[in-house]
Design a binder for these strands. Structure first.
Length: 463
RNA sequence: GGCCUGGUAGCCAAGCGGGAAGGCAGCGGUCUGCAAAACCGCUAUUCGCCGGUUCAAAUCCGGCCCAGGCCUCCA
């Protein structure tokens, strides 16, 4: 049984999707006004793990990630560069898709853009107007929080405690109650970004896009909605209010939120200079797979303290993991060790069991590392055969559908180097160790490391 | 001020009432012609601090300290 911590109920619950074997999942995606930073990617990696794990255990996942391509920041950015909003956001969408690839994040089934769903948003707002949940004020449309009695159920916020006027209303529109939120913003001439619709000339507020697009692709009630904790209030709270007011149905069954990423124990911020984009790290030559591993390997509800030291540690772990995976190949023995199959079963069981418990990735990984240790023992004793190699590699590839940390790049050595290795093996057989060591040292200079195993000599390249 | 997380070895990180997982780094050993890799052992009599509950607490309760988040457009 899969269990998740549900922000809505504040406890771990057994997971039952609405339709058997199908999970409908919505992820709050990027606002495409700049490069995404590793804090953003922490959330996307968590969602990727969730997505992949659900598929791994047999669910069909239908997943939507929105792209916010119209808001104050994108409009401002485009204006500053003197290009169209589309030109501006297209650029950052492209970068985002590249970053997703770099981190091996599975692409959601739908990545709808807000600007391409104005019609759906207008329909939803009309519904809210008709039902009396929304009102016009100076050409903008607001949602009336007082009409939705269960407002606050997700975040646990007590509206009477909200400091009124604490933050200046960014858009400076008037509303009846300062706590009401905007559904539709009246067009501003100087912005030059608006749609002429039956509810007026304007552009959507932030929250409405997620309600409109999730319902379009997933239905009025769906299974899982994810995001960072900072989205709980107000964004997700408002999504619930507007969606449930419009449909009269429960919006989402399971809300999952991941904790923040800190950098050197502090909140990441540009002014502190501890702000990393993915590209910053790649420019420093860090292995992208290690970045994925680092973001993946801490439980999603715990704060993750990012440091370059921990990234280097992750690089070592990923390197060792891959060397184990590749290093088995040398074994061509006809032996067959019956125990390996059992060990695979055990490891797989542990892996699934732990991930099923609210994605306990650390425990599930420990099950895999224990497996590796056991295999190494058999391997180095010579109690291993090529069928076992196949079994173990298949298992690692199997779980890699979730983890995605295997590096599959094929490595080649030139013929003459391979001949040298053979020559060394012959020298060793002839007990001409001086020659053998000379060859080994020579290749080491060329960053090729030789290792003698019970099954012959294997090589690896240092990077 | 209100609400909410987290503080476990040198570093990262599980466990959340009854044996302190796992990873990285380090040291010693086994194996090896020598290496490398691997394996074994060592590195937390103790889980931020102080009290309390309990036969039993890292785990529950209370207080305190530290770090972080949210409190109307940050993942």
């Amino acid at each position: 049984m899969v269990r998740f911590y549900n922000t809505l109920t504040k406890k771990k619950e057994d997971f039952y999707p609405i339709e058997d074997k199908i999970v409908k999942m919505y992820t709050c995606g990027p606002t495409v006004y700049d490069f995404a930073h590793i804090g953003n990617f922490r959330a996307y990696v968590f969602e990727d793990l969730l997505h992949r794990f659900l598929e791994y255990i047999g669910y069909k996942v239908i997943r939507v990630m929105n792209i916010t391509d119209v808001d104050d920041k994108t409009i401002k950015g485009a204006k500053k560069e003197g290009i169209s909003l589309k030109e501006y956001t297209d650029r950052y969408i492209k970068y985002f898709l590249e970053d997703i690839n770099t981190l091996r994040l599975k692409k959601p089934d739908f990545m709808p853009r807000a600007t391409e769903h104005i019609k759906e948003m207008v329909e939803l707002i009309k519904k809210l107007l008709n039902k009396g949940y929304a009102y016009y004020k100076d050409g903008s449309i607001y949602f009336s929080i007082s009409k939705f009695s269960s407002y606050g159920k997700l975040s646990g916020i007590d509206l009477s405690n909200v400091k009124i006027g604490a933050s200046v209303d960014a858009d400076e529109y008037e509303k009846e109650d300062v706590r009401d939120f905007v559904l539709w913003k009246k067009a501003k001439e100087e912005e030059g970004v608006y749609w002429d619709t039956e509810i007026g000339k304007g552009r959507p507020g932030w929250h409405i896009e997620c309600s409109a697009m999730s319902m379009k692709y997933l239905g009025e009630t769906f299974d899982i909605h994810t995001g960072g904790v900072d989205n709980i209030f107000p964004h997700h709270e408002n999504e619930i209010a507007q969606s449930e007011s419009a449909t009269g149905k429960k919006f989402v069954n399971y809300w999952l939120h991941c904790a923040h990423l800190l950098v050197n124990g502090e909140k990441m911020s540009k002014s502190k200079g501890n702000f990393y984009t993915l590209r910053d790290l790649l420019n420093k030559n860090y292995n992208p797979v290690a970045i994925r591993y680092l973001l993946l390997s801490t439980h999603y509800r715990d704060p993750l303290n990012f440091t370059e030291q921990s990234l280097r540690q992750a690089e070592n772990t990923v390197r060792n993991y891959n060397e184990f995976y590749k290093g088995l190949n040398i074994c061509a023995s006809e032996k067959y060790n019956q125990m390996i199959k059992q060990e695979i079963e055990k490891a797989k069981k542990g892996f699934i069991k732990e991930l099923s418990d609210d994605l306990n990735i650390s425990s599930s990984l420990s099950s895999i590392f224990n497996f590796i240790k056991t295999v190494n023992i058999f391997f180095s004793k010579g109690e291993f055969g090529k069928e076992n190699v196949k079994e173990v590699k298949e298992f690692m590839e199997d779980i890699d559908r979730v983890l995605c940390i295997i590096e599959r790049k094929e490595e080649f050595l030139p013929e003459e180097i391979l001949d040298l290795i053979k020559e060394r093996e012959k020298a060793r057989k002839d007990r001409d160790f001086e020659k053998a060591d000379k060859i080994r040292e020579f290749l080491k200079q060329k960053k090729i490391i030789l290792e003698d195993t019970p099954y012959g000599t294997r090589w690896k390249k240092l990077d």
